[in-house]
Write a protein that binds this DNA or RNA. Structure first.
Lengths: 113, 113
DNA sequence: ATTTCATTTCTATTTTTCTGGAAATATGTT
DNA sequence: AACATATTTCCAGAAAAATAGAAATGAAAT
């Protein structure tokens, strides 16, 4: 994680619709949600939502996967953790900052984080 | 911490100059830095920097204090932690997310965090 | 192969944010 | 009081981001 990608991720989250979409996906968990479903829940036109999902995806915060006719989106926990890690890493400037425990992404990654 | 202030803080950090300024202040620690010094280090016109410092301050991420002729800025660790807490709080959606350890702001707050 | 459905890309418009010089404000100095 | 210094506010222009309708794409069903 460098400054550029941190800014991209922060900027992606720093928007009403995108933060809402991201949190929706975080709550949806492994199952994820189809673009249309997200648009319905958030009450957004498809084109608008698509724009925002692309932003989140460009920042690496969410992941896309086709399932039948729909495109399923999922939160990318490791990317989320990388961002938090970056922010805490540059925090406290050498003093005893013990920021470590972030969000364990999923069962199969818990031991390697 | 609610969505609105989280977005404000995220947006404040999601900018080249502001992230640089914030990290500079984080590294400066308790001592802080005068606006002019920050402007010099970052190579920005005073008016431009002032705009960005105001953004960070509006988001509550930094704090201002006059010292002689200069305005000293300091990072606001508790606010930083609140933001990280908000992001991790809404992470993992009820599963075993143990995100807790953030950045201990200062010696006198370490025991109450 | 054609149709259908879900989603994205295109495009123009609007809105917001960023920039930096000049003037104003606030503090400290002589 | 007059001056010097540090920083902010004002302003207008420039740049970037958001919006949403319409057209295009892509995958699957018939």
């Amino acid at each position: 994680m460098n400054a550029e990608s941190a800014i991209e991720a922060l900027g992606a989250l720093a928007h009403d619709h995108r933060l809402a979409a991201f949190r929706l996906l975080v709550q949806a968990g492994e199952r994820g949600m189809a673009a249309g479903a997200i648009a319905t829940v958030l009450g957004l036109p498809n084109s608008s939502l698509s724009f925002h999902l692309a932003q989140l995806r460009g920042a690496g915060l969410i992941v896309q996967q086709r399932q039948h006719r729909s495109l399923i989106y999922r939160a990318n926990y490791p990317a989320m953790n990388a961002l938090l890690g970056y922010l805490t890493e540059n925090c406290c400037a050498g003093s005893d900052c013990t920021a470590e425990a972030l969000c364990p992404p999923s069962d199969n990654e818990r031991k390697s984080a």
